[in-house]
Design a protein around this nucleic acid. Structure first.
Length: 890
DNA sequence: AGTCTCACG
DNA sequence: ACGTACGTGAGACTC
C-alpha cells in the first residue's frame, strides 16, 4: 500500500536540540539536533515504509501571517546559533538519503505540509505527518494522521480523528477555533483575554466555532465573559485566522515528485562517518530501502532487509552430546518462561547463542541434560543475559543455578538512561542491527495469549539470545564511556544476584492472623456503611468519588474546595478540611482508611501468598525508577502501612519463616538529609549531624532563632516539612499545601531557611546549573539522569526539571548507599558462614530473618556494614530493631 | 485504559 | 498568570 510521510523539519530539529544532551565534533560543531533528526528519520523509514516522502522547513522570518498580524511570534526567542548551524547538516543527511525537502518564502513548514496533505487527500493517499507541533493536528482526517513526538523525540503519539475527539472533544477543524479563543503564548497569538482552555472548550461545545461565538455573543451566560468576547471579537477572529494552516500554497512540485524508493548505502555511510554517528552506521544496512553498492533501485516495496534466518539446533535426545559444543562461553542465555510473574512460572525452554551457534533446549530436556546444567551453574563460563534475575529465580525454583552472569543488557540499558521507559529487548535489538518481534506480539497478550509451535518457540528464543549477544559489546562500550563501569559491574550486577535470592526466599505471612484482621475490618466497615447511609439519607457507593461528591457537595451542600478534571475532589486533604462541617465526613475518612486496609493489605496480600511456601515472593524491579531506587511489585512490599497504628498492625502478620528465628530491621536515620549535608558541605547541616542532633529540632532552632527548649511541637513540625521540601526541590506552593498555610508564609519559611543554610542554597543553585551545562545530574556513584526539559521554554516542564535536578542526586545517592550496603552485607554473611537471610529492602531499611544464635552477631554486623558503606563528611547512622514479627521490630 | 485515591520512603 | 512538592504500586470505579 502506498503511503505519504510528511516531516516537519524545524519542529523535529528543535525537539531534538532541546531533548538531547549536546554532542559536538572536534571542530566544535554541534550535532545533536542532526543526530536526533536522523534517528527519527530512520525510525520513520523502518516503521512507516513510506512510498512518498517530503521534509518541510520554515523559510525566512517573515510570513503572510506577519502581514496580517505584526506581533505574530513576537515573543519567540531567537533560534540559538548552536541549532541554526545544524540545519545545513540535516540537509546533507537528507541529500545522502535522496529525500526531498522544501521551504518556501512567505510560508511556514506547516503550510507546505497542509498543502501537500490536501493533494494526498484528494487522491486518497494515506498520509502520516511527523511533528512536535500540536497545531498540525487540525489537518487530521480519515486519510491523514499525525505522529506527535512527546517527551524527547523517540516516542510518538499517534492521532486520528477519534483520538482528537477523545482528548479535546472537538473535531480537528475546531482546534483552530480553540486557539482563536484561548490564544497561544508561544506564537504570541492573543485570543480573548481571560479565556483559557476550560472556557474555550465550554464555548465551543455550545456554539461550535469562533464565528458563531461572536455572532451569538448575547447568548453567552456570565456577564464578564460576554463582555470580554464582545470587546475582543475582532481579535478572536484574527487569532483564529492566524492559527489556520494554509492548504493552497503554490508549490513548485507535484505529489508524484515525492516518490521515494530507497537509498544507496555508501553516500549515507559517508555522511554518518563525517558526523561520527557510529551507532547509526551499524543500523543502516537493516533499514528498509537500503541498497548495497551496485544494487539498483527496485522500488521501495522491495527494499526490505528481511530478518536473516537463524540456524537453530534443538536439543531433545540422548544424541545431545553432539550439541555440547554449542555450550560455549561467552554465550547469551535466555531462560524463556510462560508469563510475566516468574515465581513458579512454567519453563518453556532455554536458548543459548554464542560464536559456536544457536541452541534451543526445550523445557523437558533442561533438567535431564547434565552438561547443560553444569554449564549454567559454572561461574567461570561467562553468560550474557537480559534481566538475568528473572531466569535465575525461575531456575532456583527448580533447584537449578545460573551463575557466571557477566553482563545484563537490561541493567546496562537502564543505567544508560533510567528515564527511558522502553528497555524491552525488542526496543534495543535494532541498535545492533537486528529486528526482533516483541514478546507481546509473538505470544499475544491477555486473552489472546497462545502457545507457540515448537519450531517457532526455538526460533524466537534464539533470536532473543542473538540480540543479547550482539547488543553486549555496544552497551559495554557505552557503559564504559559513561564512566559507569563501577556502578554496573561492582554494584548493580552483584545486587541483581542478591535480589534474586531475596525474592526466592520470600517473606513468611501468618495468614490466620491476617484473616482475623480482615474480619475485624469487615465488621467495622459494615457499621460505618450503615451510619454513612443514614447520615446521607440514602445508600450509595462510598467508594465512587463521583457518587460521594454528589452526596457531599450537591445533596448535603458542603463547599467543594477543590476540583479534579472530572468533578469534585474528595481526596483526604479536602475531607480533612471539612471534618467539622458535617458528621458524615470523619466517618467517610475512617471508612476510606479501613477500606484501603481491607482491600489492599488483607485481601490483596492474601491473594499473593504462595500456597506451597506460605510466603510472599515479591518482584523487585531493578530497572525502573528514574533515581536508582528499587521498586517492588506483585505485591508491593515497600508500602506496607506503618504511619497509623491500625494499619501498622498489618505488620504483625509478617513473621520469620523458621521456628525460633527473629526478624531484624535496620534503617538509616535521616539518610537523605545526611547525603544533602555531604553534597552541599553546608556548615550548619554538617555540624548538626556531627553532634547527632534531632535534625528537625535543630532546623527549627536555626530558622526561628530560638534555643532548643523553646522549640514548640508546631515549630518542629514546620521545620520538618521544610526539610522534606528542601529534598524535593521545594516551591512555596508545595510547602504551603503540605503545611496548610498561606503561600506567603511558606515563602517566608523558605527564605529564612536559605538565610541560615547558605551552603544548601548554594548547592541547589549549582546543581541546577550543572544540569543545564551537562544535560544530566549524577549521584555519588556516578548514576546519571538526563534532564532534557531543563532548557524547555515551557515554565512547567522547566521547573519540574529543576526540582528533579535538586532531588535526584540526593534520592539517588541514598539509593546507591543502601545498594552498596546490601552487596557488602551479602558478602559478609557468606564469609562468616551465617544462616541469616536478607529478605526485604524498603529504600532506607533492610529486613533480615535471623536464627536466635546469630542475633548478637547480626545486631553488630548489620549496622556496622551499613554505616561504612561509604564515607561521607557526616556519619551515617543506623537503628536496629528485633522482634517476633515485623510489627515488633520497631 | 484512564482517573482518582491512598499506602510507603 | 501560570500550576508544582520527589520517587513508587495497587484497588476501585468509570468509560
Amino acid at each position: 500500500m502506498e503511503k505519504l510521510v510528511l516531516i516537519d523539519g524545524n519542529s523535529i530539529a528543535n525537539r531534538a536540540f532541546y531533548a538531547l544532551p549536546p554532542l559536538t565534533l572536534a571542530s566544535g560543531q554541534h550535532t545533536h539536533a542532526v543526530y536526533g533528526f536522523t534517528t527519527m528519520l530512520l525510525k520513520v523509514l523502518e516503521e512507516e515504509r513510506p512510498t512518498h516522502l517530503l521534509v518541510a522547513f520554515d523559510a525566512g522570518k517573515v510570513t503572510f501571517r506577519h502581514a496580517r498580524f505584526e506581533a505574530y511570534k513576537g515573543k519567540r526567542h531567537k533560534t540559538p546559533n548552536e541549532l541554526s548551524e545544524q540545519f545545513p547538516l540535516i540537509k546533507d543527511v537528507l541529500d545522502a538519503f535522496g529525500i526531498r525537502y522544501h521551504e518556501q518564502e512567505g510560508f511556514e513548514a506547516d503550510d507546505i505540509i497542509g498543502t501537500v496533505s490536501a493533494w494526498a487527500e484528494a487522491r486518497g493517499l494515506a498520509t502520516r505527518i511527523v511533528t512536535g507541533d500540536k497545531d498540525l493536528l487540525q489537518l487530521v482526517s480519515p486519510y491523514v494522521t499525525v505522529a506527535l513526538t512527546r517527551k524527547g523525540i523517540s516516542e510518538t503519539e499517534r492521532y486520528d480523528e477519534a483520538a482528537i475527539r477523545q482528548k479535546y472533544g472537538l473535531t480537528p477543524a475546531q482546534l483552530v477555533d480553540l486557539k482563536g479563543l484561548m490564544g497561544d503564548a508561544s506564537d504570541n497569538i492573543p485570543g480573548v483575554p481571560g479565556v483559557g482552555e476550560k472556557t474555550a472548550l465550554k464555548l465551543l461545545a455550545q456554539f461550535g466555532s469562533v464565528e458563531e461565538v461572536v455572532r451569538r455573543v448575547d447568548e453567552i451566560s456570565g456577564p464578564k465573559l460576554r463582555e470580554a468576547i464582545a470587546a475582543h471579537r475582532e481579535q478572536a477572529l484574527v487569532s483564529k485566522e492566524l492559527a489556520v494552516i494554509r492548504r493552497d500554497v503554490p508549490l513548485p512540485f507535484e505529489l508524484e515528485d515525492l516518490r521515494y524508493d530507497g537509498f544507496a548505502l555508501e553516500p549515507v555511510r559517508e555522511v554518518f562517518r563525517r558526523l561520527e554517528f557510529k551507532s547509526l552506521l551499524d543500523r543502516l544496512p537493516h533499514v528498509p530501502g537500503a541498497r548495497a553498492p551496485g544494487e539498483t533501485s527496485t522500488g521501495a516495496e522491495e527494499g526490505d532487509a528481511a530478518p536473516t534466518p537463524l540456524d537453530v539446533a534443538v536439543a531433545g535426545t540422548a544424541e545431545d552430546a553432539a550439541l555440547e559444543r554449542l555450550l560455549a562461553a561467552p554465550a547469551a542465555v535466555v531462560v524463556e518462561l510462560d508469563g510475566d510473574n516468574y515465581h513458579e512460572a512454567a519453563l518453556l525452554g532455554i536458548g543459548v547463542y554464542s560464536d559456536a551457534g544457536a541452541l534451543f533446549v526445550p523445557a523437558a530436556r533442561v533438567e535431564e541434560w547434565e552438561a547443560l546444567r553444569a554449564f549454567l551453574a559454572d561461574p567461570t563460563r561467562e553468560k550474557w543475559v537480559y534481566d538475568g534475575k528473572r531466569g535465575e529465580v525461575a531456575l532456583r525454583w527448580r533447584g537449578l543455578s545460573l551463575e557466571g552472569i557477566a553482563f545484563d543488557v537490561l541493567i546496562a540499558s537502564y543505567l544508560l538512561n533510567p528515564t527511558e521507559s522502553r528497555h524491552a529487548l525488542s526496543d534495543l535489538a535494532p541498535r545492533a542491527g537486528l529486528s526482533l518481534a516483541p514478546d507481546e506480539e509473538v505470544y499475544g497478550k491477555g486473552a489472546k495469549r497462545r502457545a507457540l509451535a515448537a519450531g517457532e518457540l526455538a526460533a524466537h528464543v534464539c533470536r532473543k539470545a542473538q540480540a543479547i549477544y550482539r547488543l553486549k559489546p555496544l552497551l559495554e562500550r557505552e557503559v564504559e564511556e559513561a564512566e559507569m563501569n563501577g556502578l554496573f559491574y561492582d554494584l548493580e550486577l552483584p545486587l541483581s544476584r542478591i535480589l534474586a535470592a531475596m525474592e526466592h526466599a520470600g517473606f513468611r505471612v501468618d495468614t490466620a492472623r491476617l484473616k482475623e484482621m480482615g474480619e475485624e475490618f469487615e465488621r467495622r466497615l459494615e457499621e460505618l456503611t450503615a451510619e454513612i447511609y443514614r447520615l446521607a439519607g440514602t445508600p450509595f457507593n462510598i467508594n465512587s468519588p463521583k457518587q460521594l461528591g454528589e452526596i457531599l457537595f450537591d445533596k448535603l451542600g458542603l463547599p467543594p474546595l477543590k476540583k479534579t478534571k472530572t468533578g469534585y475532589s474528595t481526596s483526604a486533604d479536602v475531607l480533612e478540611k471539612l471534618q467539622d462541617a458535617h458528621e458524615i465526613v470523619p466517618k467517610i475518612l475512617y471508612y476510606r482508611t479501613l477500606g484501603k486496609l481491607k482491600s489492599t493489605y488483607v485481601d490483596g496480600l492474601l491473594k499473593e501468598v504462595n500456597p506451597r511456601t506460605g510466603k510472599i515472593h515479591t518482584i523487585f524491579n531493578q530497572a525502573l525508577t528514574a533515581t536508582g531506587r528499587l521498586s517492588s511489585a506483585e505485591p508491593n512490599l515497600q508500602n506496607i502501612p506503618i504511619r497509623l497504628e491500625e494499619g501498622r498492625r498489618i505488620r504483625q502478620a509478617f513473621v520469620p519463616s523458621e521456628p525460633g528465628w527473629k526478624l531484624l530491621a535496620a534503617d538509616y536515620s535521616q539518610i537523605e538529609l545526611r547525603v544533602l549535608a555531604h553534597l552541599s558541605q553546608d556548615e550548619a547541616l554538617v555540624d548538626a549531624f556531627h553532634r547527632d542532633m534531632d535534625i528537625h529540632t535543630r532546623t527549627a532552632m536555626d530558622v526561628f532563632g530560638v534555643p532548643e527548649d523553646a522549640v514548640t511541637p508546631l515549630m518542629r513540625r514546620q521545620a520538618k516539612a521544610v526539610n522534606f521540601g528542601i529534598i524535593y526541590g521545594i516551591s512555596d506552593y508545595g510547602l504551603s499545601q503540605n503545611l496548610g498555610i498561606p503561600r506567603k508564609e511558606a515563602a517566608a519559611f523558605i527564605e529564612r531557611y536559605f538565610d541560615v543554610f547558605r551552603g544548601v542554597k548554594r548547592y541547589m543553585e549549582d546543581v541546577v546549573e550543572e544540569a543545564r551545562r551537562k544535560g544530566y545530574v549524577t549521584t555519588l556513584l556516578g548514576r546519571r539522569r538526563f534532564l532534557p526539559d531543563i532548557h524547555s521554554p515551557n515554565y512547567n516542564l522547566r521547573s519540574f526539571a529543576e526540582r528533579t535536578a535538586r532531588n535526584t542526586p540526593i534520592q539517588g545517592t541514598a539509593a546507591d548507599i543502601i545498594k552498596l550496603a546490601m552487596v557488602n552485607l551479602a558478602r559478609r554473611l557468606k564469609e562468616e558462614g551465617l544462616r541469616s537471610r536478607l529478605i526485604l529492602q524498603v529504600h532506607d531499611e533492610l529486613v533480615f530473618e535471623v536464627p536466635e544464635d546469630e542475633l548478637a552477631v547480626m545486631r553488630e554486623l548489620v549496622p556496622a556494614v551499613m554505616e561504612r558503606a561509604v564515607r561521607l563528611s557526616v556519619p551515617l547512622k543506623v537503628d536496629v530493631h528485633v522482634g517476633d514479627t515485623w510489627y515488633d521490630a520497631k
